[in-house]
Amino acid sequence: MPAPTPEAAPMQGLVASAHQTAGPYWHLVDFPEWADTTRHFAGNLPPGERIVLTGRVTDGSGAPVADAMVEIWHADPKGEYPDPNGPAEEFQGYGRCATKADGSFRFVTLKPGPVPLGDRARANSRQAPHVALAIFARGLLQHLCTRLYFEGEALNETDPVLGAVPPERRGTLVARQVEPGTWNLDLRLQGEGETVWMAV
């Protein structure tokens, strides 16, 4: 049997479908309660700190982006993600929030813990606590991705993603505690102070 050539195409040759904009009418799938990831846990919240995440999304002219869908995804306070085969009633650090007329969003969630880096060579290394952000909107043919970090975390100093960002732009990823338990990070799609957007 002839050996396969190194150039052999992937087995099925399928190519990921093209993204398209969510458009201005995505609110048909907006469910405001999704902005609170703790909503399923009345008196039995998993241990951890309940926090509020806020921010404003603005465009290249500084105008508010009033029609964006903001999504968050993050680990639980222990730094763990739910087991794909575990009970669906586990805490899920997923939320969705529509921006308001002033471009603002607001989530209620639990502060994530440090997530393992997953690097064999550095088995005990952990990423700084962070939240994945995805922004969908009219004018975004694909969603924009970035991460939110928390100011003052010791692990921020060694986090490989933060470390790959030029120091002068790192601040666009680091939320500040504006009042106890409330963390704010503004997002700039374009121009001065543009958020460090990530190719995920």
Partner: peptide
């Protein structure tokens, strides 16, 4: 609508 909403900086490969 992409005019004022597309990033101008290169994306960071995550």
């Amino acid at each position: 609508s992409t005019r004022l909403r597309h990033p101008q900086q290169e994306l960071l490969r995550l």
